[in-house]
Structure formats: structure tokens, C-alpha cells
């Protein structure tokens, strides 16, 4: 699996209605720590098929970012059965991302 890019249009279907735990990364192309986190998330997506890893570009999806109260990037949310169960901000190593689930 690779990291899936999500828009407001498919957020309901791909994230909220997903039967697997979902990690959503709110990021931007110009943000250094987001670039640092990207390979970590790509690795998790490859190694952990039991999770779904998604990303939301805050420049293209500013309404979605505002809805989630994102004021710092990267911000990660774990969503299980449509509910936010955990969140974290900033770049972090793989083990700490996995701890969020």
C-alpha cells in the first residue's frame, strides 16, 4: 500500500467509513518537517497493511484543515470507525507514529 491522497470529496468514504484504523497526515509541500515525515509514513504504509495511511494537502484542502482545527503542520490524526482516537503534531520517528494507533 502507498499513502493515499485525500480530498474533501472522498474524505467521508475513504477515511470516516473505512473499516481499518486510518492515519491522516495534514501537510504542505513547502513544509520541511512534513517532508521529513513523508518517508516515515510511506514506510508504515508499506509495512502495515492493517492500517490505512492518508494525507491531506492543507493548501488545496483548507476547509478540511480548518474543520480539524489544524494550526500546525504536520498534524496527524488517528481515526477509527469515524472517530478521532489520537492526534500528534510535528515530525516524529516511525515507532512514535505507530504508538498513536
Amino acid at each position: 500500500m502507498s499513502v493515499m491522497k485525500i480530498t474533501a470529496a472522498d474524505f467521508e468514504k475513504e477515511v470516516l467509513a473505512c473499516d481499518k484504523p486510518v492515519l491522516v497526515d495534514f501537510y504542505a509541500d513547502w513544509c520541511g518537517p512534513c517532508k521529513m515525515l513523508a518517508p516515515v509514513l510511506a514506510q508504515i504504509a508499506e509495512e502495515h497493511p492493517e492500517y490505512k495511511i492518508c494525507k491531506v494537502n492543507v493548501d488545496e484542502e483548507s476547509d478540511l484543515a480548518a474543520k480539524f482545527g489544524v494550526m500546525s503542520i504536520p498534524t496527524l490524526f488517528v481515526i477509527k470507525n469515524g472517530e478521532i482516537t489520537n492526534h500528534a503534531m510535528g515530525a516524529m520517528p516511525k515507532a512514535r507514529v505507530l504508538d498513536l494507533f
Binding site: 504542505a28 513544509c31 520541511g32 500546525s72 498534524t75
Partner: peptide, 16 residues
């Protein structure tokens, strides 16, 4: 309050 108004990276979060 980190990420809720308090930040450490202006280039990351300034746009908000």
C-alpha cells in the same frame, strides 16, 4: 497550547 496558537516553526505554521 503547542499547535493551538503556540508554535516553534514560523515557516511551517505562519500560513495559518
Amino acid at each position: 497550547l503547542a499547535g493551538r496558537g503556540v508554535g516553534y516553526c514560523a515557516t511551517c505554521d505562519g500560513a495559518f
